[in-house]
């Protein structure tokens, strides 16, 4: 009986992953033969939410570590953009149509940001549908986490997922949007638009524990995006020699 329950749990998780995963695009550029030239880059959060700022920070850190980009720090960005941590830079959060486009309002906002930062590239990142499906081993009775915990932030995203009982692993998920703009030609040359997942094996814990799931998810997502961007830095100058 226990095995059947476990099997159902794992199958349900797998189905969720399959249904939500799709073709994963951590970062993609306009053409296969396009590459990122060495230069200055600022990774900015499109919104004032904690998770988007953490994504921006993680992408920045990984780009700095893994590539030869001159990456502007979040602190430096905050010094140049008044109220950076408090304002929503982009106004259109749901992107429709081409992945290489922005609404006129968003484009205007990024151009205004560029005047402050003056970098050769700006990568703007934001997210939605931040969800954790906690693990719940069959043997552990729990009233705090009855079934699924769905995250909805007072000043952030909300979402819901089909739930699974008795799952052995916690799964966290986030949908990330990103646009890479190059200057001075004001072109969108790359994008991110996909779900990112994080899995961890743990027993059911107090709610707070799941904050770490989110933190891990955001850090890993930032690393995935940065590493994918690195693939487009074909120019030897921009790659680290240790590679």
């Amino acid at each position: 009986m226990c095995r059947i329950i476990r099997f159902c749990g794992v199958t349900a998780c797998a189905m969720i992953l399959i249904s939500c995963g799709g073709a994963r695009i951590a970062f993609e550029m306009d053409h296969d033969d396009t590459y990122l030239k060495p230069g200055t880059i600022a990774v900015i959060s499109g919104t004032n939410r904690d998770e988007d700022h953490m994504l921006a920070e993680s992408i920045s850190d990984n780009l700095r570590d893994e590539t030869g980009f001159q990456v502007m720090s979040q602190k430096e960005i905050a010094e140049k953009i008044p109220d950076y941590f408090y304002k929503n830079i982009i106004s259109e959060w749901e992107m429709k149509g081409s992945k290489f486009s922005f609404s006129p309002e968003n484009m205007k906002a990024i151009k205004a940001v560029h005047k402050c930062l003056n970098t050769e590239y700006i990568y703007v990142v934001w997210s939605s549908d931040l969800v954790v499906i906690p693990s719940k081993p069959a043997d552990v009775a729990c009233t705090c986490l009855d079934i699924v915990v769905v995250l909805g932030l007072g000043n952030g995203t909300g979402g819901m997922v089909p739930y699974t009982k008795n799952a052995e692993r916690s799964i966290s998920r986030i949908y990330v949007y990103g646009r890479l703009m190059s200057f001075p030609d004001d072109d969108i040359i790359g994008y991110t638009a996909d779900y990112f997942f994080n899995e961890s094996c743990c027993i059911t814990m107090p709610l707070k524990t799941y904050n770490y799931e989110i933190t891990d998810l955001l850090k890993n997502t930032g690393r995935d995006i940065a590493l994918e961007m690195k693939k487009y830095t074909k120019n030897k100058d921009i790659r680290k020699k240790r590679e």
Binding site: I147, V148, V149, G152, G154, M160, L207
Partner: peptide, 13 residues
């Protein structure tokens, strides 16, 4: 501050 609202299948926190 009320920075987060957690929704489960049968409760809101």
């Amino acid at each position: 501050w009320a920075p987060s609202v957690v929704r489960s299948s049968n409760s809101i926190q």
